[in-house]
Design a protein around this nucleic acid. Structure first.
Lengths: 140, 140
DNA sequence: TTATATGCAAACCCTTTGCAATCCG
DNA sequence: CGGATTGCAAAGGGTTTGCATATAA
């Protein structure tokens, strides 16, 4: 299953059409493991001579996120970031307040304690968001 | 130290002027322990016949947050929420995805593990944001 | 063919800002 | 008095949307 069929299948599943623009956006998202905003993706595509509009970038990303092919990340600066969904594992983020770098981490102990907190508050936990803000290795 | 002097002192400390509008916004923020957005505060004040502009609400809230009298909360829906700072204790939030209710919680074990994660990633932790999304007691 | 997707620009939403008028100290 | 604060409306930044045109199936 190559990168073309991944998208094609996902679209077909939802009765959506396979278009050049959607493939283009998906390719760009897959080209790095970074957490990028929509404008960044749009500008890169245009700079590379690819034909896509900003509106289509936004609309395509929305489709990808809904289909589970991409993840949306909100770090609180007013712009949403997107990352290709690498696998099924959930992860949280460490954000460098100096250089903006975003690193991922997983801590199962914390995940467990969150469930704990939910239970003791009679809260049915659906998702969570944990972000650590500070200085990355290079910015200290 | 009544609610008037709290604000007066804080403003004086920063060489800022004590104004009717600032007191008005601060009073409104203190009137509940809810997490409210700027528009909500503005509309309530106007509805109560108080004279203040939207711009002043935003500017005042910013002053209060900077002075540590209020806290800003971003739950990822595009609007910032504000709460009066009750005491010095940090806390995280549980957000009901059905009714929007926001409850607070503290879990020292999780706080400790966050420090742990930071250390093992050579990350200098400054702040963090942890939000649990799900269904509150009443919405299950 | 024909309904879905695209591109464009305008609209949106929340928030910030420039500037003249007002007010605190 | 004189600079800080206010109100207004316009601008800003990111994102969404209406509509005519283009295109996948």
């Amino acid at each position: 299953m190559n990168k073309y069929s991944v998208l094609k299948e996902a679209l077909k599943d939802s009765g959506l059409r396979y278009t050049q623009q959607r493939q283009t956006v998906w390719d760009e998202l897959c080209s790095t493991s970074d957490h990028r905003d929509a404008e960044d993706i749009y500008v890169t595509l245009v700079r590379n001579g690819l034909s896509v509009s900003r509106a289509t970038v936004y609309r395509t990303i929305e489709v990808l996120v809904k289909k589970g092919l991409a993840r949306k990340l909100d770090i609180g600066d007013g712009r949403s970031r997107y990352e290709m969904r690498q696998d099924n594992s959930h992860h949280d983020h460490m954000i460098c307040v100096n250089c903006g770098r975003i690193e991922e981490f997983v801590d199962l102990r914390i995940e467990e304690l969150q469930k704990d907190v939910a239970v003791s508050n009679s809260f049915i936990l659906k998702t969570h968001k944990l972000q650590l803000y500070g200085l990355c290795r290079d910015c200290q």
